[in-house]
Write a protein that binds this DNA or RNA. Structure first.
Lengths: 229, 229
DNA sequence: CATCGAATACTCTACTTCGAGTAATCGAGC
DNA sequence: GCTCGATTACTCGAAGTAGAGTATTCGATG
């Protein structure tokens, strides 16, 4: 994190609140929750307080007053600085303009997919598709409700984006599950066969040593594991 | 992370290597890299060694031998245990079947988007679209090359998924940028106006106190910030 | 007016992650 | 046979993250 002095996106949420008026950390957290920002920015107390400390240390916010009611914990009210305002604008512009590589768990799963037999993978992807459909329906019901309250799509935009991406994932997963299940996916036969061989006690090294013997012509594709990645 | 004894997906990559044969950590890292898995599973040395330790501590892998050549660092070779094999299958099945909520930086950006004026946001989204197109072209060129080497799509699946999702993002971002730029997005007028008022020194609180006065009828939508989220 | 759950407002610590740093060996070329 | 960059193989510490735990007050209910 050479670029940003504070790297957690929660810090951007903190700055966005302080842009309106000075607040203390707990108030920031409730404000973000009220506005549904915790749906798009991960928020937990441990991170909130350390992020606020860090923003303070770097001069992006400043402590205004420290008060206490009776014996309740101290509250420190923070205000944004000019430096903080500049950082907010620059950071937000970067988030919108610049894609960053994010590692998702489905990508990890897909890349290791051959570790399970194809019929099982097809079933698992079908299960995922069902869950995605449920999730999409759930979010869309909330959108309908929110629009009924007169809320602009502008304030739902991150959630609309989420539905858009979940739908794309659903398309992919549905198609892939079908292609694997039906055997339309090239290589599925070998994939299946390797799992059969392995449960008969043949080691990976034996199969790799002479794939054509174990897998027939399809096995030739395994010869140079020459990923041009 | 109550579920998995070791939470980092890198641990699944480690297990997948040891499923083939025992290896030492550095060999695991080169194997994962050779196969292009570091494109889909974040891999860095610090994490690798702590993940291996953790797998060992939890009995999912076991140390086989510790050797050293001359004065070179020690190498510990690890083998997977039956427990590790079970964990691998169960975890991989979960990754494929169960969507998890992942917070992306674009979602964070979109949710705070009104913090910049609409014309600037439209321009930033256009910039992003261009970068996404470049990224997609780049990955597709690699696919073409890999297929030319006789590689099955099966071994490119995570990368094909990535292109699918990048394309979905590109669609969304392109459309949103146009809608905001053209003013077709409802609420854009108020959004613009708020930024004008703010740079004239009007505070957020004043605007929220009487939105209709500052923004006309469109401002009425701001009255109950009643996110049904 | 006593009680009990919800809300307020943090604190603490164990765990994870990151990536620069270290240190030896190997091989190619002059 | 010497040098220099690549490769092998990790180590270390600073920083960040998670989320359970703590302590107080408020408000509704019987």
């Amino acid at each position: 994190m050479a670029r940003r002095r504070v790297g957690n996106p929660l810090a951007l949420g903190v700055l966005s609140c302080l842009l309106e008026r000075p607040m203390h950390p707990y108030e920031i957290s409730t404000t973000l929750k009220e506005r549904g920002k915790e749906q798009s920015i991960k928020l937990n107390y441990g991170s909130l307080y350390s992020v606020v400390d860090s923003l303070h240390k770097h001069g992006l916010i400043q402590a205004q007053e420290t008060s206490r009611d009776g014996r309740r914990p101290e509250r420190t009210v923070y205000a944004i600085t000019d430096d903080g305002r500049a950082e907010f604008e620059d950071w937000l512009a970067e988030l919108l303009s610049t894609p960053v590589r994010e590692f998702t768990s489905l990508e990890a799963g897909l890349s290791l997919m051959p570790g399970l037999p194809p019929d099982q993978v097809a079933a698992l992807l079908e299960t995922r598709a069902g869950r995605l459909r449920a999730e999409i329906d759930h979010i869309e019901a909330m959108h309908t409700a929110a629009r009924g309250q007169g809320l602009h799509d502008l304030f739902l935009i991150e959630s609309i984006y989420r539905v858009h991406m979940l739908t794309a994932e659903l398309d992919f997963v549905t198609r892939l599950g079908q292609d694997i299940g039906s055997g339309a996916m090239p290589g599925t036969k070998s994939w299946q066969r390797i799992h059969e061989l392995r449960s008969d006690g043949v080691s990976m090294e034996e199969i790799f040593a002479d794939p054509v013997r174990y897998l027939g012509e399809e096995g030739r594709a395994l010869l140079p594991p020459d990923h041009a990645n």
